[in-house]
Computed example of a mutant assay.
Amino acid sequence: MLQPFQGDRALRIAVLTVSDTRNEQTDKGGPLVQELALAAGLEIGAYEIRKDDTTAIREVLAEWLQREDLDAVVTTGGTGIANRDVTIEAVRPMLQKELDGFGELFRFLSYAEDIGTKALLSRALGGTAAEKAIFVLPGSTGAVRLAMERLILPEIHHIMKELTKHRQPRV
């Protein structure tokens, strides 16, 4: 059953996979985001795969930030420390506010679960722009599952309520 977000409409997310090697047949992170979101009663408003290229990432994100039918964006991939990993650098300048706790909690949970000290390499990022929540996740399915199940899905409705509460008439 869909949880209404605005009127009768469920909260709707866009999913972006950033990869130089994945396509719709080999992408695992983006489809997992969609599967978990749908199971939680969210709708999928868009899904794309883009190369690890700052301009390509910003282009699709800018388009999605203009869409009134989208409430949040979840990206997977391109968050490592290799030279080609540019998702953080592409997205961070577009944020109006960062949700520092998202990255901090993601790394803490990753460390505690099974990643150990390798968690310090994670550059997961959360923030807001244009009244939308934006989450930048590593591309592994383990990272996607952890972020979606433990952080994003439990808080997304609260985050969206805070982002849009100024729209509600005060009583």
Rank of each mutant, 00 (worst) to 15 (best):
L65I: 08
K118R: 07
L61G: 12
T164E: 09
V60D: 11
K51M: 09
F5C: 12
Y47Q: 13
L146H: 06
K132C: 09
M1V: 15
R12S: 14
R167Y: 09
G41P: 07
T17S: 13
E63Q: 14
G7T: 05
L32V: 03
M160Q: 15
A147P: 00
I115G: 00
D27E: 08
Y111M: 06
L153V: 02
A10H: 08
K97T: 12
E89N: 09
V60N: 05
E48C: 05
L121Y: 05
T21I: 05
L137D: 07
H166R: 12
E89C: 09
L137M: 06
L61K: 11
K97A: 11
V73R: 03
S110P: 01
G41T: 06
P31G: 06
E131M: 15
I134S: 08
I152V: 11
P169K: 13
M1L: 15
T164S: 14
M94F: 12
R84A: 02
A10V: 04
E155W: 11
P154V: 05
A40L: 07
I49H: 01
G142R: 12
F106H: 01
N23S: 10
V86C: 11
L120E: 01
F135I: 08
Q25Y: 05
R12A: 14
T164Y: 04
P154H: 08
I134Y: 10
S19F: 00
H158E: 14
T21C: 03
F106N: 07
A39C: 03
M160F: 14
W64F: 12
S140T: 05
R145F: 07
K118P: 00
G80F: 00
L146M: 13
L125A: 08
A130F: 13
L121W: 00
I13Y: 02
K132I: 04
T54M: 14
H166G: 14
S110W: 06
I44E: 11
K51N: 12
A119P: 00
V73D: 11
K132N: 13
I159M: 13
T128N: 11
N83F: 05
R145M: 06
T21N: 05
A147D: 02
Q66R: 15
T164M: 09
H158T: 09
R123Y: 01
M1S: 15
Q25T: 03
L95T: 06
A143R: 02
L120K: 07
I81V: 12
V136L: 04
A112R: 14
